[in-house]
């Protein structure tokens, strides 16, 4: 194998990555393109960025996208109100516009003295035009501040991870620039590994019973929201805290509310699923 100069992500102790995901991450790092991660809620999309940062020992900058987020927020904010206020009351040096320019998350990532991991979490929450507004910035890794006529160039191209719950379709031009990975729901073997990482002291028989129940619930197609990995982990924690034994889990499902979050799902399970689980 040839020598590779770039950072290689190998997973971390707390986060199990599948081979394809690991490759996708490394390709994204090497080609210096943003990595777009999709997948069911609770499959660890956000955690991935945290663990890339951890695994590569880089600082993580989180930009949580909201429905009101604009691309400009990520670059910089010109605090005009503060400047107006200062001019009114004579505080601060109003002629120095620079001190009223506040860099956003993207700006922070660009100006950081080291290479950082930048996560744009839930990009689909923002307006449909949002990704388009960031095209150039992510491509060139630079932007211009009009107020000070200054161009911010990335000192070190950050490793960009973007997560999406596909609430909105992302524009093609944006997608073309990304590396894409869809996190599949883990199968039982991988799930066992994931649980073991989080609860190393869990008893084998309890784990088996828990996973059996969990995949049984996942198998019910009528659910509006199927329980996911993070809910499973919460559930095991609840079982641990409640001191529930393996037998109790095989008879019924304690703390069902941790797994099922929708009233309709809950009722559906109580009425129909209960028979199936006993069978």
């Amino acid at each position: 194998m040839s020598e590779r100069k770039f950072d290689r992500f190998m997973g971390t102790q707390k986060y199990i990555v599948s081979e394809p995901l690991k490759n996708a991450v490394n390709v994204a790092i090497a080609l210096q393109r943003p990595l777009l991660v999709k997948g069911e809620p609770g499959t660890g999309k956000t955690l991935l960025a945290h663990n890339i940062a951890l695994g590569l020992d880089k600082e993580l900058i989180v930009w949580n996208i909201k429905s009101t987020s604009t691309a400009q927020d990520g670059l910089y904010i010109y605090d005009t109100v503060q400047r107006l206020n200062d001019s009114r009351f004579g505080d601060g040096d109003v002629s120095d516009i620079k001190q009223y320019i506040k860099l956003g998350k993207l700006g922070m990532a660009f100006t950081h003295s080291e290479r950082v991991v930048l996560i744009l979490d839930e990009i689909d929450k923002a307006d449909v035009e949002f990704p388009n507004d960031l095209l150039n910035e992510l491509d060139e890794m630079s932007f211009h501040i009009h107020e000070t006529n200054e161009t911010i160039n990335a000192k070190h191209r950050p490793i960009v991870v973007i997560t999406s719950n596909s609430e909105k379709e992302l524009p093609d031009a944006f997608l073309r620039r990304c590396i894409f990975h869809y996190i599949e729901f883990p199968d039982e073997t991988l799930m066992e590994e994931i649980v073991m990482v989080h609860f190393p002291e869990i008893k084998k028989d309890l784990l088996r019973e828990v996973l059996k129940k969990f995949y049984l619930l996942r198998g019910i197609n009528e659910f509006r929201k199927k329980p996911s990995t993070s809910e499973l982990l919460d559930w095991i924690q609840a079982l641990n805290a409640g001191g529930i034994s393996c037998e109790d889990v095989s008879d019924e499902i304690p703390f069902l509310g941790v797994l099922l979050k929708k009233e309709a799902d809950y009722e559906h399970f109580i009425s129909k699923g209960a028979e199936a689980s006993r069978a």
Partner: peptide, 28 residues
């Protein structure tokens, strides 16, 4: 092609499958 020329597929069809998919296909 860039990724391939840098040897990311490790001359393996399996790795190539995921590599090509993550670069070429942008939606599940």
């Amino acid at each position: 092609i860039d990724a391939l020329s840098r040897g990311f597929a490790f001359s393996s069809l399996d790795t190539f499958y995921y590599l090509a998919r993550s670069i070429l296909v942008k939606s599940e």
